[in-house]
Each structure stands twice: as C-alpha cells, then as structure tokens.
Nucleic acid binder design. Structure first.
Lengths: 149, 149
DNA sequence: CTGGATGTCACTTTTATTATAACAGCATAT
DNA sequence: ATATGCTGTTATAATAAAAGTGACATCCAG
C-alpha cells in the first residue's frame, strides 16, 4: 500500500470523532482503528487543523470537529490534505526543444482542469454527515460505539 | 512513489501520430519528444494497442491511430492505460476488528465511485481532436510540423 | 543475408508516501 | 511543584509504485 490514503484516513479520523463525541480519544486510540501509528494520526490532524476542520488543545486528548458534520464536505477535507495538488498529473519533463511536447502538455492542462473541477464539484456535494449516514447503514446502526471509556 | 504520467504521455504519443501522418515515426523519435527512452514508449504503445487505439506492425516504424482523433476520447486512453484503477485510493489496511474502520471505508467507496464517475464522464467528453485543436491554438498553428523525414 | 525496428521481459533507479523515533510543550492530577 | 500523559512537530527510515533501461527474440525492407 503506497497509494496515497491520506484523504481516506482523514475522513476516517473525522468520522471517528463524530461517532464518539465527548469520549477520550488519544491519537493512540485512533491509530488503532486506522491501524497505523499515533504520530501519523497527529500529522493528519495537524493538516485538518490547518484546514480549520478540527480543533484540539495540546496535551489534551479531546479533539473536536470545528463544525457539524453536515457542514464539512469531502472537498474541504481534500483541500486540507492535498491542497491544490491535482488528481491527474502531467508530464513536466518533455523535451523543451520540441514544440509538440510542450504544447500538447499545455493543451492537456486545460482539459485536466476541467476534470479536476468535475471531480471537485462532486466532492463538494458530499458531506461528512452523508458518509456517517451511509456508515450507519453499512454497520447496521451503531453496534460499535460501546467499549470506549 | 512517483506521480503517474502514463496518461499524459500516452496522449502525447497519440497526438504525435495524429500530427505527423505518413511520417516515419520510430519509438526513438517519439521518445525524443517525450524525453524518455524508446522502450518506455513501446510499452505505452503496447497498452494503446491493447486498448485498440493504435495499430502497428512489428519491425515497421509506422504506427497509426486505429480511428480518427475525433472518435478517441480521453476516457478511452485512460482505460487503456489505467484500466479500472481509480483516481482516489482507499486505505484497505484499517483494523478489521474495528467496525468503524471497516465500515467507514465501505461507505467511502460509494462516494469515491461517484467521484470516479463524474471524472470519467468529463473524460468521455474530451476527444483527441479537441486536444489537438487546443494544441494548434497554443502552438500558433502548426509551426512545428517541419523537419521530419 | 543484413540492418534496423518492434514487442516484451526482467531488472534498476527514482521518489512520493507512509512509518517511526525523538522530544519539547502543555494539561491534569496529586 | 512535580510527575505523568498526551500533543505538536521535526527529522529520518522504510516501503512500494512508477518510470528508466538493457537485452534479445522477432519481424520487415532492401
């Protein structure tokens, strides 16, 4: 697994918070659900904090969402994690002496931008609440929220 | 990792063919425009051949498009190069003992599929001809098609 | 035949991403 | 105040996907 999973993991973290309000959630505990290490979780949360999706206090294991799940879109999370990085990548190493190589890539950029906008429009229409609702359907209504201190 | 540029490079190759009809195009020559090595170009062309976008004869340096550029979409090229590989990747290594981890990823899949469909719908609307037309605008009307044997 | 190109495979190199260790800074409890 | 536990951040290592490359059998044209 070396495909980028930051977006998926970030959603996982946010959903985890939303599903366990008021519970003591250390990065260690979240890491167990994502099956990774606490430092990575804290890095994710750091990005989410910069994106103003999450607030937390240093030394205090109670991170909380900055606003309700219905007002956090997948695009918000994408921006927080990936910034302006596009989903499709161009080859920027073509031969600069070859007009075809340079200008084909310039032309492609316009179309890649269109694709990016289409994807982002879709992301903007999906909220964390939607994902949580779907989660509850899949999980068979919250049979997993026990056993947490 | 490395950012994948196969799609961009494949479009580059196809456009190169379309722009130089009837010209002797060895993988070596195309590689110079893409600024890579001939073997990689031949690998790209191999995938394009499997996708039925390109035909060529072994030992014969005259690859040609299987159909006109207006009937080759960016989605066709994407399929040939990436198959069913999605543009967004899920984390498949979450803790299987944690219902949240498993089911959040299941829920995400549905939404990632939506995003994939939106992106692909856009790709299906873009043809190689469109890209070539834009290329000509950028290049200032075919000032680069000389000097080829 | 000979020369040149393709098609394919195996291997190497590169590099984005995740994994992890270390530690200063802050909160809480005793 | 001090001890403990957790956070936030940085630096570095390990992993793995992608491109880069060499080799060679195969096929075409002259």
């Amino acid at each position: 697994m070396k495909y980028p999973t930051k977006l998926s993991d970030a959603v996982h973290v946010l959903a985890f918070l939303a599903l366990h309000p008021g519970v003591c959630l250390t990065s260690q505990r979240i890491a167990e659900s994502v099956q990774t290490n606490p430092a990575y979780i804290r890095q994710l949360m750091s990005a989410l904090r910069r994106g103003e999706l999450l607030t937390s206090v240093r030394g205090h294991p109670h991170p909380t969402l900055s606003r309700e799940p219905g007002r956090i879109t997948l695009l918000d999370v994408y921006r927080a994690m990936e910034g302006e990085k596009p989903i499709l990548h161009q080859d920027t190493h073509t031969n600069p002496d070859c007009g075809v190589g340079v200008n084909i890539q310039l032309a492609l950029r316009d179309y890649y931008d269109e694709i990016q906008r289409a994807a982002e429009a879709r992301m903007a229409a999906i909220t964390l609440q939607d994902i949580i609702d779907t989660y509850r359907q899949k999980a068979g209504i919250s049979s997993d929220e026990e056993g947490l201190s």
